[in-house]
Amino acid sequence: MRQRLVWLAVSLVIPTVCLVLDAGPFAWNNDDTEAKSPPPFVVSKRVPVLEDNGYYPCSDCHDNDSQKSNPRMRKLDDEHDDLAFDHGKQRFWCLACHDSENRDMLVNRGGQLIAFDESHLLCGDCHYQQQTDFMYGAHGKRLQSWTGVRQIVACAECHDVHSPNFKPREAWQPPQARTGLTATSVHQDIGGVEHE
């Protein structure tokens, strides 16, 4: 009996102590910044851009009536064949992110519907670190002002969501040396002064 009581006491006391420690000043992982909710922000709207492109609303074509959703993974060679489709190294299919029922909405892993204007809520399903950084300011790009309510660029504005990696492109011109002089870099074996 006494032994049982001891065990009971131990099993009650240990979790209590742990709870107190965790909430109190001895917390092991007491990260203030993480705990604080992110400062207010506004994400740039995607829908107007998509409308301009003529892709939105999706339900214009995908009405689940004449156009039934086809869950089979296949090569798109009729419509949307211009999409570079290598997000997640081809592991994904349209319906990984687009809702099969409500075609004007996106859907996350938990089945919650997400508007096109709030894609950052969806991307975080996998890219959770980037999402946290995005909300607090270490990922993404701020617009207009460094102060006040943050206005940030939506994920899909910088990343082509179907092929999110940035593509290599031409850099702006290399620096020139001062007029009358020629540049010489570590890899080049030219330079010095041009004498007239």
Partner: peptide
Amino acid sequence: QQLPACQEACPTGARVFGNLLDPDSEI
């Protein structure tokens, strides 16, 4: 209260500018 031109021009969002005295700032 505008952003520096280099921040505005950066297409990848690599540049973060802000007020160090504002505890809620991105920086």
